[in-house]
Amino acid sequence: MSAAEITAAPTGRGGRMARAQIVNAALALGLIGFGLGAWATGETFLVTLATKVAILAIAGAGLNLVLGFGGLVSFGHAAYFGLGGYTAGILAHHALNYTPMFEWPVLFEGTTSMPVIWLVAMAVGALAAAVIGALSLRTTGVYFIMITLAFGQMIFYFAISWPAYGGEDGLPIYVRNGFPGLNTLDPIQFFVLVVALLLAVLGLIAMLARSRFGLALQAARQNRQRLMAVGIRPGGVLLVAFVISGAITALAGALYADLNRFVSPSMLSWHLSGELLVFLILGGTGRLFAPLAGAGLYIALEHLLGGVSDHWQFFFGLLLLGVVLFARGGVIGFLAGGRKHG
């Protein structure tokens, strides 16, 4: 009764499925079209905005895996986002200053190569998610929400007060990290790279959702007892999902750091955790493309409402309240239809 249905499963309710797939395709093409169109007309800044949407959508996709499919309300996903960002920032910092990160037990140097940074960021995110998940998953429901929130704050305060990497000031990356064969400083090339990653991540999640693991994850959301009856420990399934989710969100964080060429503790703040949840509810929880729809809508609203009033968050709050109370399927639910839940 909690979260929504998964549109990735290709069985049953044919007409609706087709419609949902059309909406998904339209969203993906819309983002790509927007980015390319802005580039063609010389609106470089709009390309940057579209890149931001894609990156936030990757972060939301990571959260969607545990929230939409696993039913875990993590209120601390900014932690992985920020850790990913700091991984990118710290690796680039050492590479640009020609100082090794540490020399013992093995020499570990910084790097400005995006693929390496992504892998390290995902490993860091996965590790943090494993530790936090192992502790948090001992609890459920409202405890889980508060504990993930509190762990997120712990990392936030640590980042603020640990002076080595800029503390509250954050850490600038003077030159955007590189990807073999691309000029990442060119906004459109970076945009294409990010969109390709977004599609890869969404593809991976669609695949996971259909796999045995995905079914077990949904079962864990709906009925833990039944899962145990068939010999699967729900805790283990949820923890694995949590770790994958942390890795994906960290990847988004690394990209976000490169987009801004800067990382600061604000990437770790609980407001960001809340905003990631908001993307999903705006988009329609549990649907594959919800993060993209939600992130796009959020960024568009920020700029449209922001153009009208400096107090746009007030109106945004009203809108969000309305969606939660009265339109629970989110944007995709509205466009694609689908089973009413709740």
Binding site: I145, V278, T285, H311, F314, L320, L321, L325
Partner: peptide
């Protein structure tokens, strides 16, 4: 607002009250 949320799941409660924070904070700033 809150009355409508008692029967909802925790996610809806989190989001609706998060929306309330935005409304109250920005309203007070206003």
């Amino acid at each position: 607002v809150i009355r409508r949320l008692y029967r909802r799941d925790h996610l809806d409660q989190v989001l609706a009250t998060f929306a309330l924070i935005l409304i109250f904070s920005e309203g007070t700033r206003w």
